[in-house]
Design a protein around this nucleic acid. Structure first.
Length: 431
RNA sequence: GACCCUGUCGUCUAGCCUGGUCCAGGACAAGAGCUUUUCAAGCUCUCGACACGGGUUCAAAUCCCGUCAGGGUCACCA
């Protein structure tokens, strides 16, 4: 039975790189009908924080990675100590006294060639004579990363270790420990790293790194997953949109790319928009409610939900990020729209009192206030005035929304309602 | 510096294993146009890459070697 693990250290949030590692571990476990194990590597009590554990679990759940088992290294110090003692007794490790007189256990690294057959990269060879002796148990009694990792992976029967490229150089050290402890070697698969746009490591400087930040920015987890998936794997048939469930069926670890990829927000935005288009408006509305409430646009205990759903449908096909709705649709919630100065300059420099006034009259006398009638009446007016429809459409949009862009004008008028539309139009009519 | 990994359009990739169907395909971005209502949506088109140099071969993006470039690791951090 395949058993993989994701082993984050709670010294920070779950970032994009970690999320990607979790993704491929989870994906592999699902495609192999195996188990996905979570191991919190909190041996560093100084830097490990409970809040980060919570944040990591929260993000993993948001991404949909449910784990079968969870372990905390901080609860297993005696296990590591026991194995270190074994190596000590076997003469494979020695004790070193620190200047303050405390004892650390050090592994004596034997000189030999180490061959690792990486599932993604193929054969990699190392020469351990270049590796210095490794600390197993630090003088404060806590285990080092490489030692705890090997003991746990073996004890937890991890069959495949799927992790970032940056761990390649840890691999020979760990292989040596597997041999010294008499454990069976697992398979190794090293994922390419994700780079920032500057070509270096993904960092706060090159964009948001925490998975939870992407949620806050209005990305759907399905979209983020799709993007991360495509960053180093491809279904091979030119498809760009693929759900995680489809990927489970098509996934083969051998098809993961060897090359590191640059994280490109533009493409993420595009993918996010593709998912937003077909997303359930009810679900989107639920995500938006707290954001709209924070802006005082609605009161979550008392608002017109059907109306909100209508607005969501009106905008969802054109949003790169869900949160953009708050800004783009603000004029539906505000008493008066926030005017874009450039738009006013461009479309409302001339006095349109006559045109707008006539349109208000037409709205008043409309037999039935619906989108079709509004448009018909509007176009009649432009014919009557002898002007091109767009000469009036753009100014009216600015008057009603404050912006030059947005949904179709007649839908805007309809959903804004007769009274609010009139009120905004009249503001630009001088008597 | 040493060791390791990697090198196809600006970016993500398909193709590479099993050489010819590739004067290299798709997507994002960018640019142009269309949509007699905007665009941040949709549609159409354009621009644009096999890092370089040697081999091997009738034939190389695909195999081999070297160079160069980028990245990673060298902690009693994980």
């Amino acid at each position: 039975m395949v058993r993989v693990r994701f082993a984050p250290s709670p010294t920070g949030n779950l970032h994009i790189g970690g999320g990607r590692t979790a993704l491929f571990n989870w994906l592999f476990s699902q495609s192999q009908k195996g188990k996905f194990i979570l191991r919190i590597e909190d041996t560093d009590s100084q830097r490990s924080k409970k809040e980060f554990v919570d944040e990591i679990l929260y993000s993993l759940k948001w991404l949909g990675f449910n784990w079968d088992e969870i372990y905390y290294q901080s609860e297993r110090f005696d296990v590591y100590r026991n194995y270190a003692d074994k190596l000590l007794k076997a003469g494979l490790a020695y004790i070193e006294k620190s200047p303050v007189g405390r004892e650390a256990i050090i592994y004596k690294v034997p000189a030999q060639k180490i061959k690792v057959n990486d599932l993604i990269r193929g054969a990699i060879e190392f020469d351990s004579s270049l590796i210095k002796d490794q600390v197993l148990i630090k003088s404060d009694g806590t285990p080092t990363y490489n030692f705890a990792c090997v003991v746990d992976d073996a004890q937890m029967n991890i069959t495949h270790i799927i992790r970032g490229d940056d761990h390649i150089s840890n691999t020979p050290k760990q292989v040596l420990l597997y041999e010294a402890l008499g454990f069976n070697l697992p398979f190794f698969a090293h994922l390419p790293l994700i780079m920032g746009v500057d070509g270096g490591r993904l960092s706060k400087r090159t964009g948001a790194t925490a998975i939870s930040d992407y949620r806050k920015m209005g990305y759907l987890s399905e979209a983020l997953l799709n993007y991360l998936l495509l960053l180093s794997w491809s279904p091979g048939d030119n498809r760009e949109l693929i759900t995680i469930n489809e990927a489970v069926n098509l996934f083969d670890i051998k098809n993961i790319n060897k090359t590191s990829a640059t994280f490109d927000l533009k493409k993420l935005d595009w993918i996010n928009n593709q998912y937003l288009k077909t997303a359930d408006p009810e679900k989107l509305a639920d995500e938006l409610i707290p954001l709209l409430e924070a802006k005082n646009y609605i009161n979550k205990d008392n608002f017109d939900r059907p109306y909100l759903l209508t607005l969501v449908k009106l905008f969802q096909a054109r949003l790169p990020r869900l949160n953009d709705f708050v800004e783009w649709a603000d004029f539906f919630f505000l008493d008066q729209p926030v005017m874009d100065e450039a738009a006013v300059k461009k479309y409302l420099a001339e006095d349109l009192s006559k045109e707008l006034g006539l349109f208000v009259q037409r709205l008043d006398t409309l037999a039935d206030f619906n989108i079709i009638n509004i448009e018909a009446s509007f176009r009649e007016l432009t014919v009557q005035l002898g002007i091109e429809a767009k000469k009036l459409i753009h100014p009216v949009r600015v008057v009603l929304t404050g912006k030059t862009i947005g949904p179709g004008l007649f839908e805007v008028i309809y959903y804004l309602g007769k009274e609010r539309s009139k009120k905004r139009l009249l503001k630009w009519v001088r008597n």
